[in-house]
Design a protein around this nucleic acid. Structure first.
Lengths: 221, 221
DNA sequence: ACATGTCTGTTGTAATTACAACATTCGTGA
DNA sequence: TCACGAATGTTGTAATTACAACAGACATGT
């Protein structure tokens, strides 16, 4: 756990909290580290989630299986991001999503109940923590809106361009790497992988983009 | 304002707060009521949002115009719901959505800054309010996930059935009214209106649903 | 260097959808 | 009750997509 103190201290959850306070809080919150293997399910649809999950290392996909057996990738989380915070914060609501470990992952687990109830007596920084969680939830909300915009486009090309524009803006550069492989990108944008590959090639021929593996360049038109 | 005290008191934002406390808080928060006409823009894409908006009366659509001129309806809000809370809570983030008044609407505006800063000295129930906002944001988050599931289905029929199933579950009955007209429902599910009408008719012939205007019955298959 | 499996790109075809154009129903006010 | 406009339903066609099947590139371990 100690190895990660510095990283945890700099995560949005504990923003503004000193290393001294952090140690106290982690104990207070029943903090523990859990590791997962590739493909392992961290959270299942239907689970009641009682812990805050913070990604310390690796990548986690948030997925959903439709009734008709189609896989939807809702989002992909990296280091210092939280899994399914909304379901932790909502009382008596089952998770409607799966969280899947991509490669080996290392997660920090905190008891949400201890974070919000007991802590107000023990830790002085309780209020700050709640504010941080509030900020994180807002950001998640806005990112979901972004995803809705991505998949609401009509054609494959429009979906890709919308997604690329946002990635470019996020990286503040027209050159960026995407975290998905082709199949996952297709599942994220809700399109067929092979049709997407075909369209990517066409877009490159048309001079809209160029790419090599996962590194893309969005040409300004 | 007084006319609405009882309603406001029972809204999720002020859950657990007495009418006495409410009066004090509303003053503390610069509370004011604003009315909007049909089609009027309450919030525009690009706006910096500094107020909490609570719907007192009427319906508000959350919309988004795509780069290619396509309208997306993200969600529809009714009485006691909040508009774009995520953008209020995120510092320095512009709204990526429009909020549009459907018919005449009446909104309660509260200064977010006063809610979160000044109030901790003045009002005793400040912590409760923050917790309430946190809960609301979580619910919004989960509803956005639901919407993602709806529009991520492959065919028009699957989109409609997914949407209807969720409405039925929400109403705890297989008979329910939907808040959209046909065009808005199509924009919500990201499909063509006429194609949707056609599919609705077919589904009725196939015995999956029956409907009359906005009242639908989902047959259990 | 070879075999193996995974990822990515390409192509043809069938299915689905968007779109436009029109028909019908419904409500409202004159 | 009539006329009008708005909302909804219907139909044919062109465009787009999903799907399947395959080919090539790449990485990995033996």
């Amino acid at each position: 756990m100690q190895n990660y103190y510095n990283q945890i201290k700099n995560s949005p959850v504990f923003f503004g909290i000193s290393e001294e306070e952090l140690k106290e809080m982690l104990e207070c919150f029943n903090a523990r580290i859990k590791t997962f293997d590739d493909g392992e399910l961290i959270i299942r649809q239907g689970d009641m989630i009682t812990n805050i999950y913070l990604v310390l290392d690796g990548i986690v996909n948030i997925e959903k299986d439709s009734y008709w057996g189609r896989r939807i990738i809702v989002s992909q989380l990296g280091i210092n991001e939280n899994i399914a915070l909304a379901f932790v914060a909502s009382k008596n609501v089952e998770s409607s999503i799966d969280a899947v470990s991509i490669g080996k992952t290392k997660l920090l687990l905190l008891s949400y109940q201890k974070c919000t109830s007991m802590c107000q007596n023990v830790c002085t920084k309780h209020k700050l923590l709640i504010n941080n969680l509030f900020e994180i939830l807002s950001k998640e909300n806005i990112e979901l809106l972004q995803k809705i915009e991505n998949i609401s486009q009509k054609t494959i090309r429009e979906k890709l361009l919308t997604y690329f524009s946002n990635e470019a803006r996020r990286n503040k550069s027209n050159i960026f790497e995407i975290p998905f492989n082709r199949q996952d990108l297709a599942d994220y944008l809700n399109i067929d992988r092979s049709a997407m590959s075909f369209e990517l090639s066409k877009m490159q021929k048309d001079g809209l983009i160029s790419f090599e593996k996962n590194k893309f360049i969005l040409k300004n038109v």
